[in-house]
Nucleic acid binder design. Structure first.
Length: 545
RNA sequence: GCGCCCGUAGCUCAAUCGGAUAGAGCAGCGGACUUCUAAUCCGCAGGUUGCAGGUUCGAGUCCUGCCGGGCGCGCCA
């Protein structure tokens, strides 16, 4: 158990002894100012009313009643905080426990029903762009963090290879394909066409692989096959890019399967039985306005075809049927209108309210030479994720994507990203790791060989470093519970800073055997946590830089 | 107009779900390498946390109202 957990229990005991009162929540935290001790609690302040005494007085009696051998010093401060200072021996022992746990430190064993996480899910009509990159980085990191926090995670990518967008996309490719042979493809309508060089590339590949056949067969038939070729081409492209940024999925779920299995019809009739649907203007509506949405939504259009909502509700229903405790969608902020209607549909089906969860990831604003780059798929001036990766590298991209809260917009200055890459905080963290590796190389030892941690007095920088290391499990837990991936980078930067401070002041490879062993243990522990933390956001921990 | 999200140092962002003197990086200025990697460290400067109220021992954090920005509000996906 962590010090925090132990302290909470011992403070609870102290309260019981002093006042014969049972408190539910006791908050222990690490003060900002080291002068205030290693840990502090505000129980006296928060519960002054319960005790009917002034907070400082309460704090005094709690200090008197506290029985915790690992606490060297407990004192009252400020308006009524109780500050704790731990013994160096206990801190050293904790570092030993950390090393014992190794890669498992900060991680819990997976337990409970699996958590379904859906992310990216971009339509196979083009390459991934920089906005998708952020969703991929966030989603994959969140999956890793949830797993570390003990939730088994199943990662799924939902893709649509039918529907209107795909038809238009197929036609766009067909036009270019015909052009390869100097022919013109008869356009079916005024619909939008996909711009971008990759359309031509697909058409060329199609021509190279299959030849002229599609110019001979019926147009409808040809279009189907061309669209199939094109979407599969794009899926390959997307998967290659994802692999490049170390983002993986357990399953790719195909929308077409929902049509084939009859699940959509089943869901529609179930909704009809629920009494939440009605017919109007020749269409079938869901009374979603009664289920938290802004207005009612159409499920089946006048022409008898479904809106996208029908398969999407069926899809989430399908997730529930597969036994997942939670289904979370990671979506771009431009899809903010989507969750309320899906939620409405699921509520109508009688699914529990907490089954469906959504995290919206803000879009990435691209800046080039101080000016914002407006881009849209339609205009064809997208900056692809691959281009970004070519410029800044995988580690920088992944780290930058998740460094700030997914709820805030980020500006990505392309020029700056390249020219200032040396000052990127990701290198700061990686450098700390490489520095430690270098110490072990010099010592002719391996971090795995570090055994017992000889107890002894710790210098201020060592204390700060140890306390930071011991905070890691809480950070992971917190990041998972709040779905805040950016807490990991924030933590890693603080930890790296603590290490660099320690490194500057204290020499590790000294003659004194105990001191050397203790400092090597500190280094090994830091290295472990840095590597684990970097892994949680999919960034490499280099041995050399 | 309605709904959701966001306004924190010149810039990019944090702030442990109400705690003590709001912190980092970059940019600026000044220091520190004959010793394990100076991609580092230390110091200085930089703030009315958009504005105005409210809740209480205590507010960047919670409530209300404004101001400013983003996104959404299709029988498109």
């Amino acid at each position: 158990m962590s010090f925090e957990g132990r302290l909470v229990e011992d403070v609870r005991d102290a309260v019981r002894r002093a006042y014969d009162v049972e408190l539910e929540t006791i908050h222990v935290e690490r003060p900002n100012d080291p002068e205030h001790g290693d840990f502090a609690t505000n129980v006296a302040l928060a519960n002054a009313r319960v005790f009917r005494r002034n907070p400082r007085e309460v704090a005094e009696s709690l200090v008197g009643a506290l029985d915790a051998p690992y606490v060297r010093e407990a004192g009252v401060a400020g308006p009524g905080f109780v500050n704790f200072r731990l013994t160096d021996g206990a801190l050293c022992a904790e570092v030993g426990a950390l090393l014992e746990a190794g890669e498992r430190y900060g991680r819990r064993e997976p337990d409970g029903r699996p958590f379904m996480l859906e992310y990216v899910s971009v339509n196979p009509t083009g390459p991934m762009h920089v906005g998708h990159g952020r969703q991929a980085a966030y989603g994959d990191s969140l999956a890793r963090i949830l797993e570390a926090a003990g939730r088994p995670v199943y990662r799924e990518y939902y893709f649509n290879d039918g529907g209107n967008q795909i038809r238009i996309f197929g036609e766009s490719v067909a036009i270019q394909y015909a052009d390869v042979y100097g022919k013109e493809w008869p356009v079916s309508g005024p619909g939008a066409q996909y711009p971008g060089e990759y359309v031509r590339e697909i058409a060329q590949d199609l021509a190279d692989e299959r030849g002229e056949v599609y110019l001979q067969m019926s147009q409808d038939e040809a279009l189907l096959e061309i669209a199939a070729f094109a979407t599969s081409w794009c899926m390959n492209d997307i998967q290659r890019t994802l692999a490049r940024v170390r983002v993986r999925f357990d399953n790719y779920f195909n929308e077409k399967d929902l049509y084939g299995s009859g699940e959509i019809e089943a869901v529609i009739s179930e909704l009809e039985e629920s009494g939440h649907v009605y017919e109007a203007d020749g269409a079938l509506w869901l009374d979603s306005s009664k289920l938290g949405d802004d207005k009612d939504r159409v499920l089946r259009k006048q022409d008898g075809s479904y809106t996208y909502m029908a398969p999407d509700v069926a899809y989430h229903r399908n997730k529930h049927g597969r036994g997942f405790a939670t289904a979370m969608d990671v979506l771009g902020a431009d899809h903010a209108g989507y969750p309320p209607r899906i939620r409405a549909g699921l509520l109508a089906l009688g699914l529990p309210e907490d089954f469906y969860e959504v995290e919206l990831v803000r879009l990435v604003k691209l800046v080039r030479e101080g000016e914002q780059v407006k881009f849209s798929k339609r205009a064809g001036n997208v900056v692809t994720l691959d281009e970004l990766l070519d410029e800044v590298g995988e580690d920088v991209a992944r780290y930058f994507y998740v460094r700030s809260s997914h709820k805030s917009e980020i500006n990505f200055d392309l020029e700056l990203a390249v020219t200032q890459s040396d000052e990127n905080p990701v290198f700061y963290v990686q450098y700390a790791h490489a520095r430690i590796a270098s110490i072990f190389e010099r010592a002719g030892a391996s971090p795995e060989d570090v055994g017992e941690v000889p107890a002894g007095e710790l210098a201020a920088e060592e204390r700060q470093l140890v306390l930071e290391l011991l905070d890691f499990p809480r950070v992971v837990e917190n990041a998972a519970a709040r779905r805040e991936v950016h807490q990991i980078p924030t933590y890693l930067e603080t930890l790296a800073h603590r290490f660099h401070q320690f490194y500057t002041v204290h020499r590790v490879l000294v003659d004194d055997a105990d001191l050397r062993a203790r400092r090597l243990a500190l280094c090994a522990a830091t290295k472990t946590v840095l590597r684990t933390g970097l892994d949680l956001v999919g960034v490499a921990a280099p041995e050399k830089m």
